[in-house]
Write a protein that binds this DNA or RNA. Structure first.
Lengths: 230, 230
DNA sequence: CCATCATATAGTCACAATGACCATAACTCC
DNA sequence: GGAGTTATGGTCATTGTGACTATATGATGG
């Protein structure tokens, strides 16, 4: 091994959750950041992450980072991109393999927050350390241009959900209102959800049906690992 | 820097070119492989690549690899995925950042071939070293599911081209015949090509128009670097 | 120079997908 | 019981697209 390799390998994760915006009350994307406790960029907010242990799988490192930061388990985790520009970290050459994850909204509400961990609305971030603003921008772009909304929405929701909740997820991600009737038509035609027969009562209006995901309809895209590749 | 990092960083590239199939004469995808001249997997075919020099950008390393292997310059180069499974290389932990590239068809014809470099049809590869078969499969999948066929086709063609040539590229990538009239209608509506006003004479039939790419229509997806991200 | 060949290029028709709306259903709250 | 509010079922027009038909036009070979 004539390794003249001088780069250090890191794994970072962009973690998304859906929660109501403080002002508007609408569902929006939020993500947790950690405050840097050492140079460079001491004191600035950054993506959760760390050096890659030599004996840990890439996705496992991302997942662990996520758990250590938020106490949560991702319902969706996928490699985003590898950033390795020479100048992205002062001093050493750092190559960061970045993952993006989605965590369930209601669980995210109870997620750990502390002096050095804080959630921010995805579209109003402070200036982050390194090139992390660019990384988040790219993650947002991927999230929004992802064809496969089905699994994404699933990751944000629980086992059962109403079409209104599902619509909320789509509206938050796409940042535009969707017609309820048309949305229902499309979703039902896609066959990705199944009527549980149950209804959700309690609201001051007609009780909506509860749906569940149709597991048999996964047309996945789990990177090169997914079933579509085999 | 408390780097307990034990992984070695490599960069590999999946290089595609379009050339006529030997038997059918139809355009198909080919890619160059290099024979391994050391253990592990000595003698087996593998993707071109090498260790990442500490002072070289990732894309530059991929591009250099490509030039050293084929003598060609890529007209399209994009990061594919980073493979880092613990067991993918016997002995050391190797993390490979893989790029995929497209080279122009007519240039690929004159590409270097030697004892240790050979072109193979993409759908009839031998058993490759490491997990490289899986990597090629994933690259093929990405190529075929890429929304942005425009830039892909452009990469395979020259400055100007006929719609028939463009159609050939699409047919080769998608592996199915396309209706000439419908194809023309769609492409013209997309606004991605511009009529040069010139025609290509010489064939024993009506001379087709020559088109050029409409540079202003790039709705790119150059990873996080592209104009769409800014 | 004309007939033929082979592809280029222009239309047509039917159908699927989708956005914009309209109407009715069925709970809770007052 | 009526009002308020969302759920859910339709309609209509527009668009995108596959399947096909018809015409255009230069090259070739007699």
């Amino acid at each position: 091994m004539t390794s003249q390799n001088q780069a250090t390998l890191a794994v970072s994760t962009v973690i998304f959750a859906l929660r109501p915006d403080e002002a508007s009350g609408l569902m929006t994307l939020w993500l947790p950041l950690v405050r840097r406790i050492r140079e460079p960029h001491l004191g600035q907010w950054a993506l959760p992450g760390g050096w890659l242990p030599g004996d840990e799988e890439l996705a496992a490192a991302a997942s662990r980072t996520l758990r250590e930061t938020t106490g949560l388990t991702p319902k969706y985790l996928e490699q985003l991109y590898t950033f390795g520009d020479l100048g992205r970290s002062p001093g050493t050459r750092v190559v960061s393999i970045v993952y993006w994850a989605l965590v369930q909204s209601d669980e995210a509400a109870l997620a750990a927050v502390g002096e050095n961990v804080q959630w921010f609305p995805a579209d109003r971030l402070p200036e982050l350390a390194f090139d992390h603003n660019r990384i988040v921008d790219y993650a947002l772009w991927r999230l929004r241009t992802k064809v496969e909304y089905a699994r994404i929405a699933h990751a944000f929701l629980g086992e059962t959900f109403t079409l209104a909740q599902l619509r909320d997820v789509h509206e938050a991600v796409l940042q535009k209102p969707l017609d309820p009737a048309n949305f229902r038509r499309t979703v039902e035609a896609s066959g990705t959800v199944v009527d549980t027969g149950q209804h959700l009562a309690g609201a001051r209006h007609r009780p909506p049906r509860l749906y569940r995901y149709n597991d048999s309809s996964r047309l996945a895209d789990q990177g090169p690992l997914g079933p579509s590749i085999g």
